[in-house]
Design a protein around this nucleic acid. Structure first.
Length: 293
DNA sequence: GGAAGTCAAGTCTCG
DNA sequence: CGAGACTTGACTTCC
């Protein structure tokens, strides 16, 4: 069975990414916006449930400045009941959610001081899912980080950093190949060195190929081996025609997705779609390929 | 109300 | 060498 889902935003519902400028920060405002975002997220998840969609990525903007030093962290206490209710809804609906820290979460950052901020960011993302009472199948997805002109050294530093993480930050962590530095092959190696599961991003893998001679099915199966417990998860998107390489398209191309499905359709997979039109692509694909959940 | 400029953080590529 | 891309636009100012 293959499940598909979408990331962060429902294009027809209020956003769960409300924020404000750092210059206007107060704890009260942070709590107010976070509460509104949680409500909006609940509405999105409800809509998902009503429409049979059980896979979703939660925006990193849920709690404004959630990992910034200016934030007291009071949201973990004050909003714990809101998070718990949200998590109960996810569990009862058989849903799977994830988070994906942004470009600033560079696990192999050279600067130790900066790495401290990376740890805060991991703590924030993990805490959201922890407060929701969700198990480690609800993952936090990160890229390998920078290459710094020496991928061997950068990889070694990444492995050291991951091994040194407190278990509470490592338990949900999964690694994903990117389109510039860490190939699918690199990620497989990093996974075997760290024990973390790996997410194959099919589009990134097309932009920055590796494992030559192996087709989509073989590569997907290689990544499958990294998933010891939770269901395997991958990312799928298409190039936006006419835009620069790596830009996500408006919607999923039925033809290319169909070909991909042709090769992996019998594998147990959760596929996160990354498109501009969000939930619309999920509905369109489920319509075009009735076997999809 | 709408357009334009700005927003916590890093790294890399393209024009 | 600055803009754009990335998990994602959203907020603020100005007219």
């Amino acid at each position: 069975m293959i499940r598909i889902g979408y990331a962060c935003i429902h294009t027809a519902l209020p956003t769960a990414s409300r924020t404000f400028r750092l210059s206007g920060y107060s704890d009260a405002r942070m709590l107010e916006v976070a509460r509104a975002n949680i409500l909006a997220l609940g509405e999105i998840l409800r809509w998902n449930g009503d429409n049979g969609i059980t896979l979703f990525r939660i925006t990193s903007n849920l709690v404004p400045f959630g990992s910034h030093p200016v934030n007291s962290g009071s949201w973990k206490e004050v909003l714990q009941d809101d998070f718990r209710r949200l998590g109960a809804f996810v569990r009862e609906g058989g849903m799977r959610v994830s988070m994906h820290p942004g470009q600033h979460t560079v696990l192999n950052a050279r600067d130790e001081g900066y790495f401290a901020s990376v740890l805060r960011d991991l703590d924030y993302h993990s805490a959201v899912l922890d407060l929701m009472g969700l198990d480690e199948g609800h993952v936090v997805v990160v890229h390998g980080g920078g290459g710094y002109g020496d991928k061997g050294e950068s990889s070694a530093r990444l492995v050291r950093r991951i091994r040194g993480l407190p278990p509470v930050l490592r338990r949900r962590l999964v690694l994903e190949n990117d389109e510039r530095v860490f190939t699918a092959s690199d990620i497989l190696s990093l996974c075997s060195q760290t024990g973390l599961p790996g997410i194959l991003d099919v589009f990134h893998h097309e932009v920055l190929p590796s494992l030559e001679g192996q087709g989509a099915r073989e590569v997907t199966l290689l990544f499958r081996n990294t998933w010891k417990g939770p269901r395997q998860k991958i990312h799928y998107s298409n190039q936006a025609p006419g835009k620069r390489t790596g830009s996500h398209s408006q919607s999923i191309d039925l033809r290319s997705f169909g070909e991909f499905l042709e090769s992996v359709g019998d594998i147990e997979l959760d596929i996160m779609l990354e498109t501009k039109d969000k939930q619309a692509s999920v509905l369109a694909l489920r319509n075009a390929f009735p076997g999809l959940r």
